[in-house]
Amino acid sequence: MIAKHEAVLAALLVAAVLAAAAVSPWLIFILTIATAKGIAVLGILLLLRAGQVSFGHALFVAFSAYTVAFLAPVLNDVALLLPLGALAAMALGLVVGAFVVRYREIFFGMLNLALSMVFYSLLEKLYTITHGTDGIRVSLPRFFGMALERHAYEWAVLVTALVLAVACAVFARIYLASPMGQGLSAIKTREARLEFMGVSARLVLLSAYVISALMAGMAGAIIAMTSRHVTPHLGYWTASGELVFIAILGGAGGVIGPFLGAIAFELVRVYAAASFADAWQLILGTTLLLVIMFARGGLWGLVLKLTGRRA
């Protein structure tokens, strides 16, 4: 029942995104970025299921985005750049994950933060390679062999992002229902029991970590191919904080939450910035505070309440 319910809502959400993008073309950019961030937040959600918060997942977003920026001059096609960026992030996720899954809670969060800040510092420091804060421009790539003009290209990337988002959401749902996914919940409640059953908690967490890195990688690649300019800021700790922010805003209950959260976040930011250029952080912060204080389930929780169902 819930699965069907979710599928209908997902379809409605995708349709709403496409309709909004069609009516106001300037939203294409923002909605693509929001969808990409939603995919990254989906990965955060898997870790949250295990009670672990990464305050450094912007590392994988930035790593993938820079992979795309560096490869773009030689392999200038979305069909190559997107998987390569995502896989590069996944590989990094395997290396970093092998180290950080030994830690829990605050140490887990801090180590992720520290490692992401190391990468951020390197992006700034290695000026001759990365152009520091100036960043690197990504020229307009081909789309599966087709050279599209800008407007068609932007549509193509948005649709690609939506397809990936749906695929990732479906996957996340299946994964969370699988024994590996159930293992995650066990880490949160009573990790030792998992070990008594002969299941390696580290392995369970590592698999979720690698998947979350892959999802962050997809997000990074899409962001790089949408903004077509990457800067170290993508990997700063506040960018990681933003992803966790979106996870809570959207609601950690279902796989649609991250996308609701991401779209709401981007729109609130744009409109807050447009109306109160000096105080958009204040508005975002207050929104977050209100959600946590008065709407624990996030936007997804509100949706469930409105439609009279419970997750």
């Binding site: 949250l48 009670g51 918060v53 305050f55 809670e105 605050i106 969060g109 904080g241 966790v244 922010f245 809570i248 000096d278 105080a279 958009w280 952080q281 204040l282 975002l284 912060g285 207050t286 977050l288 505070l289 946590i292 204080m293 624990r296």
Partner: peptide
């Protein structure tokens, strides 16, 4: 929020951080 999950507590302070950033500017 003392009874809440650590992630929510962390985020509450993150929200405060964002708010205070702008308060300083104002």
């Amino acid at each position: 929020i003392y009874a809440e999950e650590p992630v929510l507590q962390l985020l509450v302070t993150f929200a405060l951080f964002m708010i205070l950033e702008d308060v300083q500017k104002l």
